[in-house]
Design a protein around this nucleic acid. Structure first.
Lengths: 336, 336
DNA sequence: CTGGCCAGGGAAAACGTTTTTCCCTACCTA
DNA sequence: TAGGTAGGGAAAAACGTTTTCCCTGGCCAG
């Protein structure tokens, strides 16, 4: 490859000229169209490509093929470790498939989500992956119009048949209930985030249903949240209301548990001896900084492969329903 | 906007037909070219655009303009909270500027970084932002060829004049030394990550230089690391070698401090009473899960604006050197 | 009255691909 | 020897923009 590489970008025309063939032949060689070029020609073209450092311009390709090699990932908050983990996982499999990830942060705002949905359509993305979608006018419209949408973590708002990838949150909630039961640990209450998220709602449903199966009925006064607050704040501010009772607290996310933990320490309660906490997501840092927190581990790093699988099946025109990945309950109730 | 929206994508030709003008006029109206269309025409075109839900195809644009509206962000690990925070910050300002972020994870691998650099060139990205670049052949070549590169957090490997955005790590290291000195806290030693990162090297240099200014010379045997390990592991495995002495430990990242903290607890040392720890990056979760960790807060959320600023100056052809943002030492030495 | 200028707008080229259509050549068979 | 065929390659169209160049009236100044 010459050293003046990027000084001027090289197009397929120059490659063809250098190889002494037509641009059609170059295109066929590059895209591996069989039976249309002799071995000698293929070699000449490949040499020219290597010498010039040629790489097809994606704009040209996208224009001609009416589809780019981009895949959009819309997340409500890219700085959230769980979202970042999913995005990283998706990015990895996309790269292997020769695709490129576009990451968009919707800030949980329907307007921004809509804006991005339109922009990604203008980009002719192969697919749009929604990590925690929020209901919005354009989302419904595009879904109806048959745009390729994949929902991750949170189901399609308003229902629908679009592919979904996530864990069985109801079952995970039930598993959490069994965690309490196995330890003969009374449940003081539930702290949770916004229930607009199908994940949160299902976790709580599963948890309460399993409790009910054993005759424990949690009063609604023991199920607390704060609208429009960060999860840590929800935990910190709501937890003290449950300190009077005995037992543990079920939190719909690790962040909420962190907040509850701090509140507990400030009230002189030791965790997990004086107050057991149970969370969700199992932040990878828990082993290091929250060895008192039992949690449901969500296999984020497996989400990428699941997305790729769904994409592949969609490409083949097959029907794609739900992909439920296996969660794991991580018990951290030793006192270290 | 009609309800059949995405069923078939609408091009500028259809808008022109509906508005009864030429596509040139539509283009001009859309791009706000002044003095080339009467108010009545503008209104007609805008009406047609709205009715059809038209949005210019970016492939066509990119082809014609020889430049897409994409900006690449290459990070060594998107799942790392610090990287995710920077990426989220960049994404936000890009969106406001009508640009779109492409996020790439290089896994700190020069080969993957090179592959992405080439792919992004094929995408005709506006700029490539490197979060913690690693030395690689293509990087040097593209830098020489005048490609728009912006280095964040870690300087251009091998030196160079490319724009850099980050904090003054040397000074931050010195600030950390003063933190110890102000508290009459002896320094047991230093735990650090890979020194291929200019950031890590500078932090340590600044720290040791400031110590030396006051006559304290840290022996090299008190400066520990482990090659090819995660930061938490480095802290966990290296910290015990320093438990014999008295005082605090300087860690080049919060993650290392987390590892050291766990090791300390397992050795019956209380933090911060028995062992003071000082870290870097100030993970936003520290207030909740590591109230014992003093740290240097890096203004990640300001990085996006700095990148945008550099981009703007480059666009105007101005010279762009270093942008050093202000860090802050967060003291958490109370015992709660 | 006429020449020139200006506002408004259209035609067409160019950007870099992929793919279809078509043509040529050499070989094989009848 | 003539005609058919398969393999190989070229030309051209199309994808959706932006922008340059040009044209047409209308108006004003000389």
């Amino acid at each position: 490859m010459p050293d003046d590489l990027a000084s001027s970008t090289v197009s397929i025309t120059e490659v063809a000229a250098r190889a002494g063939v037509s641009i059609a032949t170059v295109s066929r060689v590059i895209n591996g169209v069989a039976g249309k070029a002799s071995a000698a020609t293929v070699a000449r073209v490949q040499a020219a490509v290597a010498e010039l450092g040629y790489r097809p311009a994606s704009a040209g390709r996208a224009l001609r093929e009416r589809s780019s090699r981009l895949v959009a990932v819309l997340a409500p908050n890219l700085a959230n470790p769980a979202m970042a983990a999913i995005a990283a996982s998706i990015e990895q499999v996309l790269r292997r498939a020769g695709l490129v990830m576009v990451a968009c942060d919707t800030h949980d705002d329907p307007a921004i989500q809509d804006e991005y949905l339109l922009e990604m359509r203008a980009q002719r993305v192969r697919a749009t992956v929604l990590l925690g979608a929020v209901a919005s006018p354009m989302l419904a419209r595009l879904a109806r119009a048959g745009e390729t949408l994949i929902f991750v973590g949170r189901r399609q708002p308003g229902g629908g048949t679009a592919p979904f990838i996530g864990i069985d949150n109801r079952r995970a909630g039930a598993d959490a209930a069994r965690y309490f039961r196995d330890r003969a640990l009374p449940v003081r209450g539930i702290l949770h985030g916004a229930v607009t998220s199908s994940a949160t709602a299902e976790r709580i449903q599963g948890f309460r249903a399993e409790l009910a199966r054993h005759g424990v009925h949690l009063p609604d006064t023991a199920v607390l949240t704060l609208a429009q607050q960060e999860h840590t704040t929800i935990g910190y501010r709501c937890a003290p209301a449950l300190f009077g009772a005995r037992g543990g607290i079920f939190c719909s996310s690790d962040l909420i548990a962190y907040g509850a933990h701090r509140a507990a320490l400030e009230h002189g309660l030791r965790v997990p001896q004086g107050l057991a906490l149970f969370g969700f997501d199992d932040n990878p840092l828990n082993d290091w900084v929250a060895p008192w927190l039992s949690s449901v581990q969500v296999p984020y790093s497996a989400f990428g492969a699941a997305v790729a699988g769904a994409l592949e099946r969609l490409r083949r025109g097959e029907a794609v329903g739900e992909t439920l990945l296996l969660h794991r309950v991580i018990c951290r109730d030793g006192q270290r």
